[in-house]
């Protein structure tokens, strides 16, 4: 095929018409999801209107949890804290566990990816371990660490690390032969090879791993906290169930979902800062 014709307009400083147009299209895109949410709420409301419904209706939920919604920052000591504090302490655990997993995972991944001996030795092990459900690690970590909080962090770590390792390894192994050949012909030193070729070539894979990892961590923390107690969104849900505050559960779930989405977007955003133009896709 012939090359596409270059008919892109030159970038003009500011074009009001285009700006308005862009805002318009953005707004238009918001319409379908808004409608979908509305329909969902209506169906929910209709299904739970009856007096003997097991679950609260949306209106009811908001009424029940109004205190929680309008004041996420209260702190009555113990585990009786606002949703902000609950989410924050969960996020702290995730932050520590995930950071450890990212550092160790990328390091191990590069090591395993560059050595075919390590790869053939360790890859099967990784493949087995990554299928272990996060909560299965909890008893082991409790037995080993004896404390609730480090155990929860360990569960985050062990959950997030496998996709990071596996993707990094894959990234290193997928470096095009050409780039390696260039390095060999130029006789690049080990550090130059690492920083100029290996690392940039692997970055897209690393970020894929990080994205999967953060998602899994957030899944794991909610479950782990239900078991270990203390402040945290997971235990908040468990506590609410034990006290039959179904509306609280629903509002907590919405918080969990939104935070999970934000975490995912955050990694993508960091990725766009780091990744070169051509490799974003």
């Amino acid at each position: 095929m012939t090359a596409p014709l270059d008919i892109r307009p030159a970038r003009s400083p500011f074009n009001f018409q285009r700006f308005v147009g862009q805002v318009g299209t953005r707004l238009k895109r918001l319409i379908p999801p808004t409608v979908a949410i509305l329909i969902f709420l209506i169906v929910w409301q209709l299904l739970t209107m009856g007096p003997d419904a097991n679950l609260p209706s949306p209106v009811r939920t908001v009424q029940d949890t109004w205190e929680l919604i309008i004041n996420p920052f209260f702190d009555n000591g113990g585990t009786d804290k606002g949703l902000f504090w609950q989410v924050l302490s969960s996020l702290q655990r995730v932050a520590i566990g995930f950071t450890l997993a990212a550092i160790t995972g990328v390091g191990l991944g590069i090591l395993v990816g560059t050595s075919s001996l390590m790869y053939s030795a360790l890859d099967p092990l990784f493949q087995i371990l990554r299928t272990v459900p996060p909560l299965a690690w909890l008893p082991i970590s409790l037995a080993a660490l004896q404390q609730a909080n480090p155990s929860a962090i360990f569960v985050i770590f062990i959950t997030a690390i496998w996709p990071i390792i596996i993707n990094t390894t894959e990234g290193v192994r997928q470096i095009p032969q050409d780039y390696t050949n260039v390095a060999r012909v130029l006789r690049l030193s080990k550090s130059q090879y690492f920083f100029k070729i290996l690392f940039p070539a692997t970055v897209p894979y690393i970020f894929t791993g990080l994205r999967i990892g953060i998602g899994l961590s957030w899944l794991a923390i909610v479950a782990a906290e239900m078991l270990i107690g203390g402040v945290g969104i997971g235990f908040f849900i468990w506590d609410a169930w034990n006290s039959s505050r179904i509306s609280d559960i629903i509002i907590a779930i919405i918080y969990v979902g939104i935070v999970g989405l934000l975490l995912d977007r955050l990694i993508v955003f960091v990725g766009t800062l780091v990744l070169p133009e051509e490799q974003k896709q």
């Binding site: 014709l5 008919i7 892109r8 307009p9 030159a10 003009s12």
Partner: peptide, 11 residues
């Protein structure tokens, strides 16, 4: 001809 912001582009 493709109209562009910088005038017409005649293919």
């Amino acid at each position: 001809v493709y109209p562009t912001l910088n005038g017409d582009f005649v293919v």
